[in-house]
């Protein structure tokens, strides 16, 4: 009986008919998985690591203090930081030059994690295809404008108290007060 059944199934191509049924079901369903990419862009998850950007404080000043920790953390050596002392705030540093080589960057996000002042962030920019490789050598300005684009909500600048400012002023005039032995 069982043999007869399987023979009958072979004769009417039962397996193939089953397959045909399945494919026809998919034809009728009309479900589409493909995304028409340039016309229809994917919604990226929040943890997406695109091009690294620089951030600003809410008053527009850049956050970066030029500590070069990102340069140290970068596994592909794509970050170059040249830091300098600020004119207006003695003993405060900033990145005079900051170069990100996107052609080398592996988008690991280690620099973002390494940054002590949260000056760096991963944007969701991923369409970096270009005919001119030089545009992929991003300087600080390019990274700041990209950061403005992707992070419109900026963090507040920490407020310094008046005596902090007066200390800075004093330092500017007479130099950094060296700690003396015996003084409190």
């Amino acid at each position: 009986m069982k043999l007869k059944q399987s023979l009958f199934k072979t004769i009417i191509f039962s397996e193939i008919l089953k397959g045909l049924q399945l494919t026809f079901k998919h034809l009728l369903k009309g479900k589409v998985i493909t995304q028409q990419y340039p016309h229809q862009k994917p919604t990226l998850p929040d943890g997406y690591r695109g091009v690294i950007v620089h951030l600003r404080y809410d008053d527009g000043a850049e956050i970066c203090v030029g500590c070069s920790l990102c340069e140290a953390a970068c596994p592909s050596h794509c970050i170059t930081v040249e830091s300098a002392e600020r004119e207006d705030f003695p003993q405060k540093r900033y990145a005079k030059r900051y170069i990100l080589d996107v052609t080398k960057c592996v988008f690991c996000g280690f620099c973002v994690q390494a940054c002590p002042v949260d000056a760096l962030a991963s944007s969701k920019e991923y369409e970096m295809a270009t005919t001119d490789k030089r545009t992929l050598m991003m300087d600080k300005e390019a990274m700041l404008t990209l950061g403005d684009q992707y992070f419109p909500i900026r963090q507040k600048r920490p407020q310094y108290s008046e005596d902090r400012f007066s200390l800075f002023k004093q330092m500017k005039e007479v130099g950094f007060p060296l700690a003396k032995k015996g003084s409190s």
């Binding site: 494919t23 998919h26 034809l27 369903k29 589409v32 998985i33 493909t34 028409q36």
Partner: peptide, 13 residues
């Protein structure tokens, strides 16, 4: 088109 519909794709667009 038919192949892509059966495979949940869009085909030439």
């Amino acid at each position: 088109k038919v192949l892509s519909d059966m495979q949940d794709r869009l085909g030439p667009m």
